[in-house]
Amino acid sequence: MELPNHSSDEGITDGLKIVSYALNSKGEYELTPDFVWPPVNVANHLAWLEIAKQITQSREKVAAGRVSCLHYYMIANQMDIGLLAKYTSQPRWKVFLHLVPFIFNKLPASTLKKYAQLYKIATDDLIQGRLRPPIYKPE
């Protein structure tokens, strides 16, 4: 690969200066800083669009009362039932049931606390059904 023109587009890395291998003018490889290749940005952007779409869908479902607010937190943090079950050391079927609003509303405080700790929110947020931003996007 030839040394490209340094891209000023920080794009998806949020300004993180990464390095990658590129040929210099003498045909030798060297680590070149400060270069983000556009196709990665496109692909990454696509992945985040998909996540954003899922989050929007989940918000709508929560608002319509079809799932509990736990569903939003799960999706917003890119988890599925299996992963959430592992993080909270519960069987999958329990987590599955907790996504049902009727069951979720009757959960004991100890279970809610587990979820709240995982997502770094207050237990009250879960009880009130407030939708806070995901872990990686603090307010």
Partner: peptide, 12 residues
Amino acid sequence: FWLPYFPKALRF
């Protein structure tokens, strides 16, 4: 995913 110093776009 849990490392706060990572740029948020890479936190998968």
